[in-house]
Nucleic acid binder design. Sequence first.
RNA 1: GGAGCUGUGGUGUAGCGGUUAACACGCCGGCCUGUCACGCCGGAGAUCGCGAGUUCGAUUCUCGUCAGCUCCGCCA
Length: 597
Amino acid sequence: MQNWKRTVYCGDLNKDNISETVVLTGWVDTRRDHGGLIFIDLRDRTGIVQVVISPDTVPEAFSKAEGVRSEYVLAVTGNVGKRPEGSENPNINTGDVEIITSELKVLNRAKTTPISIEDNINADENIRLRYRYLDLRRPEMQKNLMLRHRASKIIRDFLDVNNFLEIETPMLTRSTPEGARDYLVPSRLHTGNFYALPQSPQIFKQLLMVSGVDRYFQIVRCFRDEDLRSDRQPEFTQVDLEMSFVDEDDIMSLMEKMIARLCSETIDVQVDQPFQRLSYYEAMERYGSDKPDTRFGMELVDIGDIAEKCEFKVFNSVTSGGGKVKGIKAPGCASFSRKEIDDLTEFAAIYKARGLAYFIVTESGVKSPIAKFFKEDEINILLERFEAGPGDLLLFVADKPKIVYSALGALRLHLAEMLDLIPYNKYNFLWVSDFPLLEYDEEERRWVAMHHPFTSPREEDIELLESDPGKVRARAYDLVFNGVEAGGGSVRIHNRDVQEKMFSAIGLSEEEAREKFGFMLDAFDYGTPPHGGIAFGLDRLLMLLAGKKTIRDVIPFPKTQSGTDLMMSSPGSVDPAQLQELHIKIAGKNSKNKTRV
RNA sequence: GGAGCUGUGGUGUAGCGGUUAACACGCCGGCCUGUCACGCCGGAGAUCGCGAGUUCGAUUCUCGUCAGCUCCGCCA
């Protein structure tokens, strides 16, 4: 009686195993049938190993092997043999050995798969998502799953050693004002009332500090019902933590150690500490972004002073109206055609820039429709400031600061990508800090918290909360990783008076504050330690560590851009009886009740 | 809510106002005892996302629609 229990993983075999008898299980990666000899590459999550089946020695196994096809599930018993001289395969880890089959069992058959199980396939994401279980069978996706596991484990171990307690917080919680749109869950026991899924465990972790937990963490799913992007999913995972009796430097320096360890132990990259720090204002001025990609230069250059004096009306009217005029140098792009420059203008228009002025720098001077508005010395100062020489192209945007930043910031990234100026082997981390506590929301016509309403203002700015809210600086910091916001946190308000002032600054009435956050204000009355914390987007960290362009590649079962799951067809309709039980009626004729097949 | 790109055998692509819709991989059958992108021979497989319009004729042009992706808005 043959025992078919696996004794070893395919990818773990090497010279040391030679002459061992092993039992392997796995999927048929490829089958090479030479008529008189069959090779099967057997694959499991560790890799592949070549299995040889000879008709002379094992005719029964051979005839079974003839019927085997790709992705069949097999168990193979055999001897680990050294490959014949010259037939080693240096391309695979197990290439020195092969399995001389003695017995073979087909555990299951497989239809031809809609996508092939190999790396570098170019299949439509549509199909990959519909057959996600097959997509995940591909080695690169398996690698991502393993990376995810490794990363969580490294983080968990690091935080454990540093005295953090892993504590779970509720998933059924309540909707609070501010922030993203909530996912709601109807309450059956309380007709007409709803739970909300957490956008983050923010309030709970602060209350845990009140409880004396001192250091908390959680690797936790969060939910935000907003539109999706390549780095945004409706449910995503945060590495969430909070510490008592610390200031921002304590948090940042500990987190730098954690991130550095994560990088070294997952992708063997050593990152320098301390991380670079940049103020929000400096980040916006130099990169046009609060999450600058600092792997390359191409910084924005301010020419407000020259614009102010020049004859070009568009420029000087902007400066006199409180706007900004800034530019960027596209190195070696003087040869751009009219069409290419038009395309850049169109690109800038996405960010509401009304125009894109340009200077083409040549040996014989500057060519530009607006050059005539500038004096020669103004042009020279300008070229010097950009360190521009013949062959370069200068691009300018004049507008409200916000538009100048976002248009040029995006243009900077766009050009860098176009010109292949981004060193993809670099891993740059930086902290952006000194954010404004509040920003004015034109639509709602009120101040809103830039981070969240529990972020502490700087001590010396507290008095400005009432007089000049826009000037108040927050004790907040974001971790930026290769131009992606990978995390953010702050020192929190731990004082009832300040918290009430904050609520009032964002236009939350006393009644509302009491109704929505009364429990929190109450908690602050019972001895709340100073505390602060941070949360990282685990999916984004993994995306960057894995060198992927979207977090979907590091999420086992992600949603499409329209928030659907193509594999299980969610969201889906529910039985009317379920709705009735919840006292819910679907209003409106446009209610979608279709089920995808 | 908006903009752009994409949609052709199982997969990835080519193509064009009239084609027998082409190619590669895969698949099926045959041959093959050292391959590993195995090789050789043969074969099957596509109402060109869906709907309407223009046209003698639409996979091709136009409009709409659906789906996927990228982005703006949104995302404390």
